[in-house]
Design a protein around this nucleic acid. Structure first.
Length: 974
DNA sequence: ACCGCCGGGTGCC
DNA sequence: ACCGCCGGGTGCC
């Protein structure tokens, strides 16, 4: 997460004033001194123009006007209440008509004709945003005064003032003096005096303060008194942890609440909103939902499943058995089916986390190619999920894409033959609107594709096998689009992309014609961009109960929250203007009241616990302790000899680069040397990936050059150095190598080339670069060279000896303890296999080169605790996604240090996580007086950096360069 | 609306 | 009086 100050807009606000700080309006009090800050996403990928426009508005001035005709309308306001002005160009009496609406959207009256005549042009051409407040006289019978505030872009100020002048109006001044008293600042507009608040001094918050303030929004929620627990329905097989029972109780209370929505109370027969000071006669509808913002790993999915089953029908749980409809169908035999023709996927059996499917097509992937043949169907079978490629859906055999998931028996996957079942009946024909007469009790779950299989998996695992529940995975080209049929299921599971795709295809979105009992958005931040089609598709779903599950409630910006509130139908914030006026602008200008409102708003609809949250003094997740030991290794005399000779030779070369100032130009070479040193620390025979370093410019033919560069890139990528792209400073995505041998993300470097054309230069070495000579990494994997090793006679190494000693000692102590042996070098893992076999260890292996099917097998095998199951897993550092669950292991042997400490931590988390019962002991092997020790130093530096600074993210290329050069110095003792 | 405005009734003091 | 003034009718846009 990163933060940045946007000085500009802060200043704009500080130099102007805005309506609000007035004794008459205590609820909108703006203290004169309060730090102002802005939550601004620094990452540009999806910035939203409209919001930015809003932020750039400055105050033009204020004016007094009149609201007339109020006796004709039912909308009511209180004194000091905000109103919205809305153009009504089709008014039969006056094309300039401007309606005045209260916060609830009810019309209060019209602007007086002459005023409307002046404002219509301004509003129609968006020259200014006019905001109104009724300062007093709210209970008048015929007319009431209106205080108007004009906001707009600086460049439009003159036009607006001129236009108003033409109509005989003049804006009141915007006070510039700090602390000027209210009485002195009454404006002089023709329409009456206007007033404004004193402007406050801009006190800039430090980055830390900023972060703290923002974090507190959610951190405060942890210390909540939502301690009532609730037992889930019997149908839920998995016992809930205390914090999950609390979430269950809270969520169900919110769903069934007959109480007024947050911030509403009954006052003199009117419903009064304490946050907006607004009242209505009609009882406002409660928000039957909210945001479950628990940290990752606290079991949001399980909690949501428990809610579905426990609050199934009219507040009652789903009972074990229901009607005995059965869907005839053959058992689906093949358990692992091709995913997109190349990967296979099958999730683990009996464990709460599925294996991550890192090879899954990305979300954007799918949406871009909405081509049906690129979509898949997912099936669940006996708590195992198979992924069915629909590319072959023409063939009769695999015609399985549409399915009713009968959870009867052991999640038996019964199959509907499309052709006979669906087409043949009237289901297809009746696919217009769903029968609104019958109340749906269907829950729609929308999630990113990457977690779809996780949902299927968890639904399978957490629901008792005898429970009769219909789950339909609305996915794949042949998904059943019949809304009547869909609304008879219990759970419909789909992805954002499917939803969006359907939404974009006119008249073909059954999901939008059903009134759902409940809609659950998983990874709710998927809809944080209010302009994204995806968000629109989600916002148009109709549902009684609405939930957002997210681990990151506000990622970077307040704006993110708006879409969520909008989805939850939390009035009046569904309307951007109100959100902006009541929350966003006050908060971004540093108004304490705004922050307070935001806080209570969030608090009322959000439940958040972090991994460190406590329940009754105990941490939510009681993970056993985790201890990290560093075991120093002394190289043997021979090893040291080899190490020193390679080092001395390399050091001389690099020293030359330093004096020449060409370190970065030879970056790949430098890394290559470091890599070789690191490998020698592990084992002197570790292959050096062939290529000796040479200058790319000296290569003879283009083909040779190409080969060499690709080899270099592979070297960099495989060296485990966790290279960041120097442009986005993130991990490399779509790595490409330049002719000057520097690796960047393809999108990043292409952007640079685009921007700097026609003379783009490499951000690292300033060589000329061109879009057409970037080289991509060929798809074939880098691994698979482990076999040719076998020719060479196996020898041990100091590290291997240390490892084997430790493993054997451990086995003697407790033969059941399982260990992870982690290295960045798969070839090293291969070398370790020999002594493991020799000493009779049963082991398995997991690395990036393995096919999905093999991975899953390996994980299942390892996680199995039966006698004879492997006690050791050889694991490559970066294998598997964050979801990888290896909690059967309680020991980790890290054979070689990683550049990035976060990568190590992530690796440790694979066994130190929910489900771990034992103390986790981690041993890091570090060779004394070697590059490895220096790497530890760099790790510590990185740790400090990560912990301390937040603004550090956007270091520029120069700093980046310097940092890299310094790293190299440290590593090679220069 | 205890207003403004309209338009008909009316017309010395 | 092609005015002023009176008082009733009336009333958003």
């Amino acid at each position: 997460m990163s933060w940045k100050f946007k000085r500009d807009s802060v200043w704009k606000y500080s130099q102007s004033a805005q309506y609000g700080a007035h004794e008459n309006i205590p609820r909108l009090s703006y203290p004169p001194f309060f730090p102002r800050f802005e939550f601004q996403d620094i990452i540009p990928p999806d910035d939203f123009q409209t919001s930015d426009e809003e932020l750039d508005l400055v105050l033009f001035g204020t004016m007094r006007g009149q609201v007339v005709g109020i006796r004709y309308y039912t909308g009511v306001v209180n004194n000091n209440e905000m109103v919205a002005l809305e153009r009504e160009p089709n008014n039969p009496y006056d094309k300039n008509a401007i309606k005045v609406n209260n916060v609830n959207g009810n019309q209060v009256g019209h602007l007086k004709r002459d005023l409307a005549a002046a404002l219509a042009y301004i509003m129609d051409n968006k020259l200014a945003q006019v905001e109104g407040v009724v300062p007093f006289g709210a209970s008048n019978t015929f007319t009431m005064p209106l205080h108007m505030t004009f906001w707009g872009k600086e460049e439009n100020r003159e036009v607006v003032l001129d236009h108003l002048k033409k109509h005989g109006f003049k804006l009141g001044p915007t006070p510039k003096t700090v602390g000027s008293s209210l009485e002195n600042t009454w404006g002089s507009g023709r329409a009456g005096p206007s007033y404004s608040r004193p402007v406050h001094v801009a006190v800039q918050m430090t980055t830390e303060q900023l972060k703290t303030e923002f974090d507190k929004l959610f951190e405060d929620l942890k210390e909540d008194d939502r301690t009532i627990e609730m037992e889930p329905a019997e149908a839920v097989e998995t016992p809930l942890l205390p914090h999950q029972k609390q979430a269950l109780a809270w969520m169900i209370a919110r769903e069934n609440s007959k109480e007024l929505p947050p911030f509403w109370e009954l006052r003199n027969d009117l419903y009064y909103n304490t946050i907006t000071n607004f009242s209505v006669k009609e009882r406002p509808e409660n928000v039957h939902g909210g945001i479950l913002a628990d940290d990752m790993g606290l079991g949001k999915t399980l909690t949501a499943i428990a809610v579905i089953l426990t609050n199934f029908d009219d507040g009652r749980p789903l009972l074990g058995k229901r009607g005995k409809e059965s869907h005839p169908g053959k058992e689906y035999k093949d358990e692992t089916v091709k995913l997109r023709g190349s990967n296979t996927n099958k999730t683990t059996d009996g464990h709460s986390e599925p294996s991550a499917c890192s090879e899954e097509p990305s979300i954007s992937d799918v949406s871009e190619k909405s081509n049906v043949s690129d979509l898949f169907s997912f099936f669940s079978k006996r708590r195992k999920i198979s992924v069915q490629s629909t590319e072959s859906s023409e063939s009769e055999e695999i015609e399985t894409s549409k399915l009713s998931q009968k959870m009867k028996g052991k999640l038996k996957n019964t199959q509907l033959d499309t052709k006979s079942k669906v087409k043949g009946t009237s289901v297809m024909e009746s696919s217009k609107k769903c029968d609104t007469g019958e109340r749906t009790r269907t829950t729609l779950i929308i999630c990113p594709l990457s977690v779809l299989s996780n949902w299927i998996d968890q639904i399978g695992q957490h629901i008792k096998s005898e429970v009769d529940l219909n789950l339909y995975v609305y996915y794949g080209p042949d998904r059943i689009r019949d809304s009547t049929w869909l609304s008879k299921q219990d759970i419909i599971l789909t992805t954002y992309n499917i939803l969006t795709h359907d939404y974009g295809t006119k008249d073909n979105s059954p999901l939008h014609s059903i009134k759902w009992l409940r809609v659950i958005l998983d990874e709710g931040h998927a809809i944080r961009n209010p302009n994204a089609q995806q968000t629109k598709a989600v916002l148009e779903l109709e549902a009684e109960r609405r939930w957002v599950l997210t681990g990151t409630p506000i990622q970077n910006s307040l704006k993110d929250l708006w879409s969520l509130l909008s989805f939850l139908k939390l009035k009046p914030f569904t309307d951007r203007e109100w959100w902006h006026r009541i929350i966003q602008r006050p908060v971004t200008t540093g108004d304490e009241g705004g922050l307070r409102r935001l806080q209570s708003l969030i608090k009322s609809i959000t439940l958040r616990r972090t991994k460190t949250s406590k329940i009754k003094g105990k941490p939510v997740l009681e993970l056993p302790e985790r201890k990290v030991f560093i075991q120093h290794i002394t190289l043997s005399v021979e090893e040291r000899k080899i190490y020193q000779s390679v080092k001395n030779e390399g050091k001389a070369t690099i020293a030359r680069y330093f004096t020449e100032g060409t370190v970065l130009a030879h970056y790949a070479d430098v890394l290559g040397l470091l890599l070789r040193l690191r490998q020698i620390c592990c084992h002197v025979h570790l292959p050096t990936n062939g290529t000796s370093s040479s200058d790319p410019s000296r290569s003879d033919t283009p083909e040779e050059l190409r080969k060499m560069l690709v080899t270099k890139m592979k070297l960099i990528l495989s060296s485990g150095s966790d290279e960041e792209c120097s442009i986005c400073l993130d991990s490399l995505t779509f790595p490409v190598i330049t002719h000057c041998a520097h690796v960047f993300c393809k999108p990043c470097i292409c952007q640079v080339i685009q921007r700097e054309q026609p003379h783009a230069k490499c951000p690292l070495c300033r060589s000329n670069i061109h879009g057409h000579n970037l080289l991509e990494c060929p798809p074939e994997e880098l691994a698979c060279d482990s076999d040719n090793k076998s020719d060479m006679e196996w020898t041990s190494s100091s590290k291997i000896n240390a490892l084997m000693n430790a493993l054997i000692e451990l086995r003697t102590k407790d033969p059941n303890i399982k260990s992870l042996v982690v290295s960045q070098f798969t070839t090293f893992l291969s070398l370790i296999e020999t002594p493991l076999k020799a000493s009779g260890f049963v082991f398995t292996r997991l690395d990036g080169s393995m096919a999905q099917k093999k991975r899953v097998e390996s994980i299942q095998c390892f996680q199995n605790t039966d006698a004879g199951s492997p006690t050791i897993m050889l694991l490559s550092l970066k294998a598997g996604g964050v979801g990888l669950n290896l909690c059967a292991a309680s020991r980790v042997f890290l054979m070689d240090p990683a550049w990035n400490p976060a990568a190590e931590d992530q690796c440790f988390d694979r066994c130190h996580r929910l489900g771990q019962k034992q103390e986790v002991i981690i041993t890091k092997f570090i060779v004394k007086d070697s590059v490895e020790e220096n790497m530890l130093k760099i790790q510590n530096m990185k740790r400090e950096l990560a912990a301390g600074a937040f603004g550090t993210k956007k270091t520029d290329a120069d700093e980046m360069k310097q940092a890299k050069i310094n790293e190299i110095r440290t590593l090679i003792d220069l």
